[in-house]
Amino acid sequence: MTKYLGLHETIDVHEILTFKHLSLTKTTTMSKLVQDPALKGILEEDSTACSNHIQQLQKFITNREETL
């Protein structure tokens, strides 16, 4: 049995993906400007997490079907 993502689900994933890209851009930009080492570490962790989330979300968009 093959299960497909619906159009509305694909659009929702795309919206989340767009938000994550914006978040990653802002985090990366701000981490270059910040001077506090603790805050810089937090921003770098967030950047890594955002990158992982983006990769996972891209899999949902490119692999629209799931075989059960």
Rank of each mutant, 00 (worst) to 15 (best):
T28P: 03
L39R: 00
L33C: 00
K32G: 03
L7V: 06
D12I: 01
A38V: 05
I11G: 01
E15L: 11
K32N: 04
H14A: 10
E9L: 02
E9D: 09
M30V: 07
L7H: 09
T18H: 15
M30R: 10
V13T: 07
M30P: 01
F19K: 13
V34G: 01
G6L: 11
V13K: 10
T18D: 14
E15V: 08
L24M: 09
K40A: 00
K20A: 04
I16K: 15
S31T: 08
L24F: 09
S31I: 04
A38N: 05
H8D: 11
L17H: 10
P37D: 02
H14I: 08
K40P: 00
T28L: 09
E9M: 05
T28Q: 12
L24K: 13
M30L: 12
H14W: 15
L33W: 04
H8K: 08
S31E: 11
K26T: 09
T10G: 07
L5C: 03
P37F: 01
T10Y: 11
K32S: 02
T28G: 08
L5R: 09
T29L: 12
L24W: 10
K40I: 00
I16Q: 14
Q35R: 05
L22E: 14
L22I: 06
D36E: 08
T29Y: 13
V34T: 05
S23R: 14
Q35I: 00
S31Y: 07
L33F: 03
T25Y: 15
H21D: 10
L24P: 06
T18Q: 15
I11Y: 15
H21C: 07
K40L: 02
K20W: 08
L5S: 05
L5P: 04
V13D: 04
T18F: 15
L5T: 01
P37G: 01
S31V: 05
A38F: 08
S23Q: 14
I16S: 06
K26G: 01
I11W: 15
T18M: 13
L39Q: 02
T25A: 06
E9Q: 13
G6I: 03
L7K: 10
G6W: 08
K40F: 00
T25P: 05
D36Y: 03
P37V: 00
E15Y: 14
K40Y: 00
Q35D: 09
T18K: 15
T25E: 15
S23D: 12
F19T: 10
L24V: 03
S23F: 15
T27W: 10
E15C: 06
I16E: 15
S23K: 11
L22G: 09
Q35E: 10
L22R: 13
H21N: 12
A38G: 00
S23T: 07
T10H: 10
V13L: 08
Q35C: 02
G6V: 01
T10R: 13
V13N: 06
K26Y: 14
E15W: 12
